[in-house]
Lab assay of single mutants.
Amino acid sequence: GSLMYASIFGNVSAIIQRLYSGTARYHTQMLRVREFIRFHQIPNPLRQRLEEYFQHAWSYTNGIDMNAVLKGFPECLQADICLHLNRSLLQHCKPFRGATKGCLRALAMKFKTTHAPPGDTLVHAGDLLTALYFISRGSIEILRGDVVVAILGKNDIFGEPLNLYARPGKSNGDVRALTYCDLHKIHRDDLLEVLDMYPEFSDHFWSSLEITFNLRDTNMIPGSPGSTELEGGFSRQRKRKLSFRRRTDKDTEQPGEVSALGPGRAGAGPSSRGRPGGPWGESPSSGPSSPESSEDEGPGRSSSPLRLVPFSSPRPPGEPPGGEPLMEDCEKSSDTCNPLSGAFSGVSNIFSFWGDSRGRQYQELPRCPAPTPSLLNIPLSSPGRRPRGDVESRLDALQRQLNRLETRLSADMATVLQLLQRQMTLVPPAYSAVTTPGPGPTSTSPLLPVSPLPTLTLDSLSQVSQFMACEELPPGAPELPQEGPTRRLSLPGQLGALTSQPLHRHGSDPGS
Rank of each mutant, 00 (worst) to 15 (best):
D127E: 14
A131G: 12
S136C: 04
G145W: 01
V147L: 10
V147N: 11
I157S: 13
F158P: 01
P161W: 03
L162Q: 08
N163W: 07
R167C: 08
P168Y: 03
P168R: 03
G173Q: 04
G173E: 03
D174R: 07
D174F: 04
V175M: 01
L178G: 06
T179E: 06
C181Q: 03
K185C: 13
K185F: 12
H187R: 08
D189T: 10
L195K: 02
M197G: 04
P199E: 06
E200T: 06
S202M: 11
S207P: 07
S208T: 14
T212L: 02
N214G: 02
R216S: 11
M220F: 08
P222S: 09
G226S: 11
E229R: 12
E231G: 06
F234G: 12
S235L: 10
Q237V: 10
R240C: 08
S243Y: 14
F244K: 10
R246L: 09
D251Q: 07
E253Y: 07
Q254G: 10
P255C: 12
P255G: 07
E257W: 10
L261D: 07
L261I: 08
L261E: 13
G264K: 10
G269Q: 15
S272Y: 09
P279V: 12
S285N: 10
S290N: 12
S293A: 15
D296V: 14
R301V: 08
S302M: 11
P310V: 03
S312F: 12
S313H: 01
P314H: 04
P317E: 13
P320A: 13
G322P: 06
E324M: 12
L326M: 01
M327Y: 10
S333E: 07
P339F: 04
A343L: 08
F344C: 14
V347S: 06
N349F: 03
N349E: 10
F351T: 12
F353C: 08
G355A: 08
D356L: 11
Y362P: 05
L365K: 11
C368A: 08
P369R: 08
P371M: 10
L375N: 06
I378R: 12
P379F: 03
L380D: 11
R386I: 13
R388H: 13
V391Y: 05
R394M: 13
R394S: 12
L395N: 06
R404S: 04
T407I: 08
M413Y: 04
A414V: 11
V416W: 01
Q418N: 05
R422T: 10
R422M: 05
T425E: 07
T425I: 12
T425H: 06
P428H: 15
T435P: 13
G438D: 12
G440R: 10
P441M: 13
P441A: 09
T442D: 12
T444S: 10
P452C: 08
L453S: 09
L456E: 07
D459N: 13
L461Y: 05
L461S: 09
Q463G: 11
Q466V: 06
Q466M: 13
A469G: 12
P474N: 09
P475N: 08
G476P: 10
A477S: 14
P478A: 07
L491D: 14
L495R: 10
S500R: 09
Q501A: 12
L503S: 10
H504F: 09
H506S: 13
G507K: 07
